[in-house]
């Protein structure tokens, strides 16, 4: 009895948090069908014209594709770098470890505007690199890596080191040990880190402004659209599509995963 109560209370809280996170966001689909360029009450009337506008706005869609490319790339690179670094810091007694960790956390402390300008100078004047999505990605890796590190250190810290040692003793090489022992242990952290880095990159615009040449990412596009409020509803429609599509994909993935688990069960046991 008591246990059920406990579960319910937490469950109610979880639902409250999800409602809090989704509540404001669910207004977006509502206003995306509103026949007014302004996101304000009262609602004016039903229209689907913003969706037509979105579908024909090639600059908007190009910006979205750019953002997805950068976001996925950044998530992978920053997680890989974060994982190796976290493992090094946790597993090996390193002289200067605190300083190294401190340094990796530094990008969190720097004003993004400063980072944007400083990186632009480094990339243009020191390396003479042309601005592109690659340079935006490099900037984003820099600010995502601390997040990845923090999460993965929290995950790896305190794990029994003997697991890895046993694997090495049993003749696995370093790569095999990493792949078969460390990585599965770190998996929840890896997923969290991927999600965080992707989300951060998807929303970042100050660094993207300075490091982007002729390629525009979605937040940059939206910010520059602020000069023209008439175009905002198209962005709203896009936001709604992203929201609905993400939810559909996530639920589908979950369904597929559970099917997979069920069908594989008999063979395992």
């Amino acid at each position: 009895m008591k246990r059920a109560m406990h579960l319910n209370l937490l469950g109610v809280y979880a639902i409250f948090i999800v409602a809090l996170l989704y509540g404001p966001v669910l207004l977006l689909p509502m206003f995306s069908f509103n026949d007014s360029i302004y996101i304000a009450f009262p609602l004016k009337g039903f229209t689907t014209k913003w969706y037509q506008e979105m579908a024909t706005n090639s600059a908007l869609l190009a910006a979205l594709m750019n953002s997805l490319k950068v976001g996925i790339g950044v998530a992978i690179v920053s997680t890989v770098l974060g994982l190796t670094a976290a493992k090094a810091v946790i597993r090996h007694r390193l002289p200067g470890k605190t300083q190294i960790v401190g340094m990796i956390m530094l990008p969190l402390l720097l004003p993004s505007l400063f980072l944007g300008i400083a990186l632009l100078i480094i990339l243009r004047k020191v390396f003479s690199v042309d601005l592109s999505l690659w340079t935006i990605g490099a900037g984003h890796v820099l600010i995502c890596m601390p997040f990845s590190m923090l999460i993965l250190i929290a995950r790896l810290e305190g794990f029994d080191k003997s697991l890895e040692e046993a694997s090495l003793d049993l003749g696995e090489n370093a790569w095999g040990t990493f792949w078969h022992v460390t990585f599965p242990l770190a998996l929840p952290g890896v997923i969290s880190s991927l999600l965080l880095s992707f989300t951060t990159s998807l929303d970042e615009f100050v660094i993207a402004f300075f490091l982007g040449g002729n390629d525009t990412t979605l937040p940059l596009f939206i910010w520059s659209q602020l000069r023209f409020p008439a175009k905002l509803p198209g962005v709203l429609a896009l936001g709604s599509c992203i929201l609905v599509l993400s939810i559909v994909i996530v639920v589908l993935a979950e369904v597929v995963r559970r099917r997979g688990v069920q069908s594989s069960k008999p063979t395992v046991f």
């Binding site: 996170l21 404001p24 989300t199 936001g239 709604s240 993400s246 939810i247």
Partner: peptide, 21 residues
């Protein structure tokens, strides 16, 4: 996994739109 993604999905709509919301 579902829950983890569920809580991050709202963040995939642009920050600016969330501020408007």
């Amino acid at each position: 996994f579902l829950w983890l993604v569920l809580i991050t999905v709202p963040l995939w709509t642009s920050y600016l739109l969330r501020v408007f919301a």
